[in-house]
Computed example of a mutant assay.
Amino acid sequence: MPETEDGGDSPVDDPKIHTVDARTLRGLAHPLRLRLLNALREFGPATASGLANRLGESSGATSYHLRQLATYGFVEDDPERGKGRERWWRAVHMGTMFNSGRFMSHPDPEVRGAIGVVLHEIATTHAQELNTWLGTMHEWPEEWRRGWDVSDFKVRLTPDLSSELIGKIHDLIESYRDRVPEDTEGSATVRSHVHFFPRPAE
Score class of each variant (00 low, 15 high):
Lys168His: 12
Val117Cys: 03
Leu25Thr: 09
Arg35Val: 04
Leu69Arg: 08
Ile169Ser: 14
Thr184Arg: 09
Asp21Arg: 11
Ile122Ala: 09
Pro2Thr: 13
Val75Arg: 03
Arg112Gln: 13
Asp6Ala: 14
Ala188His: 03
Glu80Ala: 15
Pro141Asn: 06
Ser105Ala: 11
Phe196Leu: 15
Asp160Ile: 12
Arg179Tyr: 00
Glu174Pro: 00
Ile115Asp: 04
Phe98His: 08
Arg23Trp: 06
Trp140Pro: 00
His126Asn: 12
Arg112Ser: 05
His126Phe: 08
Leu161Tyr: 05
Pro181Trp: 05
Arg90Leu: 06
Glu121Asn: 12
Asp14His: 09
Leu161Asp: 15
Leu55Val: 10
His126Thr: 04
His120Pro: 00
Pro2Val: 13
Phe74Thr: 03
Thr132Lys: 09
Glu76Ile: 01
Asp13Leu: 12
Met104Cys: 02
Trp133Met: 10
Asp78Cys: 13
His65Thr: 13
Arg156Leu: 06
Asn131Gly: 11
Trp133Asp: 08
Ile17Gln: 10
Val111Ser: 03
Asp14Gly: 09
Trp89Met: 03
Gly82Leu: 02
Asp171Trp: 06
Arg23Asp: 13
Trp144Lys: 04
Val190Thr: 13
Ser58Asp: 11
Pro107Ile: 03
Phe74Trp: 02
Lys168Glu: 13
Pro45Arg: 08
Gly167Thr: 01
Thr125Leu: 09
Thr125Glu: 10
Gly73Val: 01
Arg41Glu: 10
Tyr72Arg: 03
Val150Thr: 15
Leu51His: 03
Val117Glu: 04
Ala52Phe: 07
Arg35Trp: 01
Leu36Ile: 07
Val92Cys: 07
His170Gly: 11
Glu3Ala: 14
Asn131Val: 06
Asp77Ala: 13
Asn99Arg: 15
Ile122Arg: 15
Gly135Cys: 05
Leu40Glu: 01
Gly167Leu: 04
Glu42Phe: 05
Trp148Asp: 00
Leu32Glu: 04
Leu157Asn: 06
Phe43Val: 02
Val118Met: 11
Glu202Ser: 14
Ala114Gly: 01
